[in-house]
Write a protein that binds this DNA or RNA. Sequence first.
DNA 1: TAGCAAACTGACCGTACGGTTAGTAAACCG
DNA 2: CGGTTTACTAACCGTACGGTCAGTTTGCTA
Lengths: 247, 247
Amino acid sequence: MFPTKEHVHGIKRQEVLREAAASFNFKGYHATSLTEIATSLGVTKAALYHYFPNKNSLLAACFEHAMEVAFASLERGRKQGKDGRERLVLTLAGYLSQLIDELNCCVVLMEEHALEPGDRAKLVRQRDRFERALRALVKEGIEDGSVVPCDPKLAIFVILGALNWVPKWFKPSGPWRPEQLTLALSQIFERAVSSAPAAALPRDVGDLPTHRPQGPARQLLPARRGAISVASSRPAPKQKRRAGGKS
Amino acid sequence: MFPTKEHVHGIKRQEVLREAAASFNFKGYHATSLTEIATSLGVTKAALYHYFPNKNSLLAACFEHAMEVAFASLERGRKQGKDGRERLVLTLAGYLSQLIDELNCCVVLMEEHALEPGDRAKLVRQRDRFERALRALVKEGIEDGSVVPCDPKLAIFVILGALNWVPKWFKPSGPWRPEQLTLALSQIFERAVSSAPAAALPRDVGDLPTHRPQGPARQLLPARRGAISVASSRPAPKQKRRAGGKS
DNA sequence: TAGCAAACTGACCGTACGGTTAGTAAACCG
DNA sequence: CGGTTTACTAACCGTACGGTCAGTTTGCTA
């Protein structure tokens, strides 16, 4: 049988995570209430506790996923790139594109302060490791001549800033496709650090080639009323406040 | 007489704003409680209400100040720059440097969602105007040949992302002086968009020239116990929770 | 020195939100 | 079929935080 029990559970869990990530990215962790997340999934707050033990673990899961993607991209970049600059740009492009379409536009890494000390320490360790690896790529690039001499620390701060800012303005429903964005950003980054910058950049991101056709692709598992579905938007049950006011 | 009553009030107000801005920038609006702000100023929460009507107005004031600085920098950049690229870079440098030392490292512009609808609409209007102006500078630069042909919208997103990210990692007490940071950032931005990029960038931001000597410069008005002083750090009165618990 | 306003405190209120729990309804299993 | 598990809801609790207010301290003015 196709959708086993655990499989369905996993998919719904993913869906919760995606919704949470999108909201955390856009409005911030503290500004996002569980009720909001639940409502936009068509369920009530309590339902979320079937998938995550508490709000904080949702955030932790976002970070965990982001860091997994980060290191996977790093490895791929290291393998496929032929010099420091290529390795750097490939890593960044992989990181960005994967997070965009897996977590509905997610680069997180803001909001780390909201994590609990243990989770936070772990994240900080991993993130530092990732940043150090990126800086190392810059250094490699300087040494092999592919990257202009510069302060690797600052260069990486600038690049990560631009990257982490993406969720604030990018909407998958907007005029630019994720692949176009990834490509265009890579080119700007490349130009900023390359020892021999290209003469030109795309004049309009929307003119860049796209791989996938327009329009939403994902659509599965129409669930019963009041359950988490993947067809994102539905009436949603009203969530009443406690009956008697106070007086 | 030197410090008139209103003058002192104004200075303290500034001090509150600076403290709030620093915390909003670093941890976010919702993660910052008024008690925290008050405590680190050495007063209690209620004291803040002598300077601002509510928490939201603190945020609004941050944005207002940031936008004033933005447009002032824009005007200066327009006057002093000789081509599109120079005007752009001067604007950005002015914006960054002024915000860093006036608001203790502040570029805000995240957290706009926390504003009340009226304030928010105003901010969005102003910010859009600022962004459009920056894009116009890029376009000018492309036309006069000082800027590489590119998508002005994306270029500005990238630059503002890097800029808005600064408060997340920059500490005035760290190894880099604000002027060094401003200069180094300007050079990277310039390189990313210039039609004829410089061959090199500074290898170490800390080696760049500084104008001011190291160490904190500001120190005024030691206030009486329990009042807002400018000498930032002091014991701070404990802020007890309500006496009887609940039972 | 009295009078007064501004600055601040400490105790308090209302409420939004994270989290819990008892109960229901569908789905699964023998 | 009956029994059990899973998914979910409605109603509720505790509390942290924004905001208020009566009262005290400080310092200016006359």
